[in-house]
């Protein structure tokens, strides 16, 4: 994955930012700064999945310039905070692997459905590949969306009876209504 230049907030250079703060008020400022930083970082780098066990390989959680790392248990607790607002979801019981939703699934769903309506593709079938990598979506926010995240977003639309997923071994597609 290529690194996009992230505009690091001042906290990133502030060594205690990488130590969970004992004072409740300070900690809540710290956690909220981490939440926005994680979402911004993932969005800039189109990073949909974080594996906490490998978190230190990401500059996000490891500032080598000041030699500070965010402890994996702290990473998990911040991701859990993000999941409360629908901005992250654990993929396993051990909470090692996480999907990051810098747009919530509902937001992704709305964007995709807008695109479908704008192009009059209701009642047509699209492959998931077309939706995430197709030529008409290159300028869309959801271009390059991770397939698992895409499927979850489409499930939201399915719940609203706006589409139906066709998931077989050979092809993965979706029919919009």
């Amino acid at each position: 994955m290529s690194e996009t230049e992230v505009e690091w907030p001042w906290q990133y250079a502030f060594p205690p930012f990488f130590t969970l703060q004992p004072h409740p008020e300070t900690r809540s400022k710290q956690v909220s700064a981490w939440k926005s930083l994680i979402l911004e970082y993932c969005q800039k780098n189109k990073l949909f999945i974080i594996d906490v066990r490998e978190a230190h390989q990401l500059p996000l959680f490891h500032n080598s310039a000041i030699n500070r790392k965010l402890d994996p248990t702290v990473v998990v607790s911040i991701l859990s905070e993000l999941s409360k607002s629908g901005n992250a979801g654990a993929l396993d019981k051990a909470k090692h692997r996480w999907e990051i939703y810098w747009h919530t699934l509902e937001e992704w769903a709305a964007m995709i459905y807008d695109h479908v309506c704008d192009n009059g593709m209701q009642n047509s079938v699209l492959t998931l590949f077309e939706l995430s990598q197709g030529e008409d979506v290159q300028d869309k926010e959801f271009a390059g969306i991770h397939t698992d995240v895409l499927i979850k977003a489409l499930r939201v639309l399915e719940g609203e009876r706006k589409c139906e997923l066709i998931l077989s071994d050979e092809e993965q597609g979706v029919k919009f209504f």
Binding site: W10, F14, P16, H23, T26, R68
Partner: peptide
């Protein structure tokens, strides 16, 4: 000063705990 929210604790310094003051941290 930590309890007042004026200082932040840094536990990753190899020799001893450091107490940082964002109000005097230039980047902040």
């Amino acid at each position: 000063m930590v309890d007042q929210g004026l200082a932040w604790l840094d536990l990753q310094n190899p020799s001893e705990k450091l107490y940082y003051f964002p109000s005097l941290f230039n980047a902040c």
